[in-house]
Design a binder for these strands. Structure first.
Lengths: 174, 174
DNA sequence: AGGTGCATGTAAATAGTTACATGATTAA
DNA sequence: TTAATCATGTAACTATTTACATGCACCT
């Protein structure tokens, strides 16, 4: 899923500006997708050029102007096509686990801060996901994705909690 | 963790060639790290030039020659330094969950194949991790990383199994 | 006085994958 | 005979992040 498809998907939930799409993605897809403005704005301009989305400039009295995009019929078709044909990989890239593989080379302080930091991050994401799950206008699919994150991150936190003692005792030479 | 640090880490477990490092990483770190030859070989050459690893060419009678690398003292220091100072992000990028968010736009066949495919992949990785966990020469840290993968992927498979019916019934309009 | 949020965008840097190139051996 | 395993490497391409540029309003 490149940024263009991500934008099409986000816009299928409702019209939005680039800024709003990023906020929305962080709030709902945050635990399994990342986006930056540097990729979102070029993607929106390209999609506009291809006629897959349409742009309306909205002047706001107190805030800066914004460009609100909406999905066209062609865009909706393109999204469906993409969803039907794309690969559906689930990739994890964890420097957290990599560093932990070498627990014996770390100081106990470092080990502790890495473990606690990761628990904190999972719990931050869990709160976001649970907030999301409370909404009653959620589609079955979106509910599945959020529930998946909830289940997996709960398991992760529980594992770290129960095995923290082991790694702290066994690691930390030096 | 860039590829260079990954190579230093892999070599801390024992001398190896680029080819062997990739196999080793796929077998043990596979569920949370990916590497390709296109990044491994340049990384090894660079590390060699910096004196962080040393190279010995081993001629084999029937197989092609190989370059076996070993960590130097400088390399081990560099690895420790890197492990002590680097950020420890845990990133998930899931096109699987993204596609599932739009379950209502997919055919039931597509939905079923995506769900089953993901379960299969998790189970493949679970088998690898469990094989790894059986080894008794495993450091506490490596055991933690493998156990984490085991716990999290188990939770993922269980979630998909128990919620497959829901998403199959609720999604698949069209 | 300074930080945060709103809002859009570009350019350079970073990092990585994919495809290609080569070639012998072994198992199905 | 066809594919897979062993083995190293390069070059082009793809994608994304980071840093920069700009600027007003609001809160502390």
């Amino acid at each position: 899923v490149d940024t263009k498809t991500l934008c099409l998907g986000a816009l299928s939930f409702g019209d939005a500006s680039g800024y709003e799409i990023k906020k929305q993605v962080e709030g709902s897809f945050g635990h399994f997708l990342a986006v930056s403005y540097g990729s979102i704005y070029p993607a929106l301009n390209e999609l506009c050029g291809q006629g897959l989305i349409a742009c309306t400039v909205v002047s706001q009295d107190v805030r800066p102007d914004k460009k609100v995009y909406r999905l066209t019929d062609a865009g909706r078709s393109k999204l469906r096509e993409e969803l039907m044909g794309c690969r559906t990989t689930h990739k994890v890239r964890s420097e957290f686990l990599f560093v932990l593989c070498f627990a014996a080379m770390l100081t106990p302080e470092r080990l502790l801060s890495v473990l606690d930091g990761q628990v904190e991050e999972f719990e931050r994401n869990l709160r976001l996901v649970q907030l999301w799950l409370k909404r009653d206008d959620l589609s079955t699919g979106a509910r599945f994705a959020a529930g998946f994150g909830d289940a997996v991150m709960r398991a992760a936190v529980e594992f770290i909690r129960t095995n923290k003692g082991m790694v702290l005792a066994g690691g930390g030479a030096q």
